[in-house]
Every structure is written in structure tokens, then in C-alpha cells.
């Protein structure tokens, strides 16, 4: 239950940071926090109280394995999601760097050339 609450806190923090912060790097950090909130939820969804690591050993009975370990699928999804998050964050930081070189600021209000 505490973990679910933590997920909500992370999601809330992420959205708050994304909307309220003017510094581009802080916005990027907020997005990363939001991402981790979703990842944590995935892990929590697959968790089973007292479950072991989901590694099927040779000779082990699959049915007993399924009862005794946590759900491995969300873990695989989270791995993929973390890799995607890494790529997104790197791209964001690279573009923020480029904008900083050009405008000399990371404040989104002061670089706003676009009308939306």
C-alpha cells in the first residue's frame, strides 16, 4: 500500500515539476521522475508477497514456479521502459544543451520564439 502511495507521489511530483518549473533541466528531471512513477507501478503490480526471483531452474516444476515467484513479465517491461527512458532523457538533455548554447539560458519563458 505504501508503495502505491509512493507511485502517486512520484506521478504528482513529476506533473507538478513539468508544469510549474521554468528551468528546462528541472522539467527534464520532472519527466524522469514521472517515468519512474510508472515503472514503479509496473513492478508493484507484478509483485507477490513472499515471491522469489522469477528464474526457472532446470528440472523445476513450472506450476510450482508460477506459484512461488513474482510475475516476471512486468520486470521485462520495466527493463524496456527504462531503456526507452534513457534514450528520451539523453535526447532531451542534448537538445537543452543546444538551446543553452544558442540562447544562453535554460529559462523556457526567455527562449520562447514559438507561438504555439
Amino acid at each position: 500500500m505504501i508503495l502505491y502511495a509512493l507511485v502517486l507521489v512520484l506521478l504528482g511530483l513529476g506533473i507538478h515539476g513539468l508544469l510549474a518549473k521554468r528551468n528546462l533541466l528541472k522539467k527534464i528531471i520532472a519527466l524522469a521522475i514521472l517515468d519512474y512513477g510508472v515503472n514503479l507501478l509496473l513492478i508493484v503490480v507484478g509483485y507477490r508477497a513472499g515471491g522469489g526471483a522469477p528464474i526457472l531452474l532446470p528440472g523445476e516444476d513450472p506450476a510450482a514456479f508460477a506459484r512461488g515467484s513474482v510475475d516476471p513479465l512486468p520486470q521485462a517491461l520495466v527493463l524496456t521502459s527504462i531503456v526507452i527512458g534513457l534514450g528520451v532523457t539523453m535526447l532531451l538533455v542534448a537538445m537543452a544543451l543546444r538551446l543553452h548554447q544558442r540562447y544562453g539560458t535554460l529559462d523556457v519563458d526567455r527562449m520562447d520564439r514559438l507561438r504555439g
Binding site: G14, L31, V88, M95, R102, L114
Partner: peptide, 19 residues
């Protein structure tokens, strides 16, 4: 500058929607 800014805005909103 304008292109990177547009792309950044696009990526931030795109990441939000993906989340």
C-alpha cells in the same frame, strides 16, 4: 533555435503522452 525548441516541446509532450 526554433527547430530545436519545437522538437523539445514535441518530445516533452510526447513523453507525457507515452507515460
Amino acid at each position: 533555435g526554433a527547430e530545436v525548441e519545437a522538437a523539445l516541446k514535441y518530445l516533452v509532450l510526447g513523453t507525457l503522452s507515452s507515460a
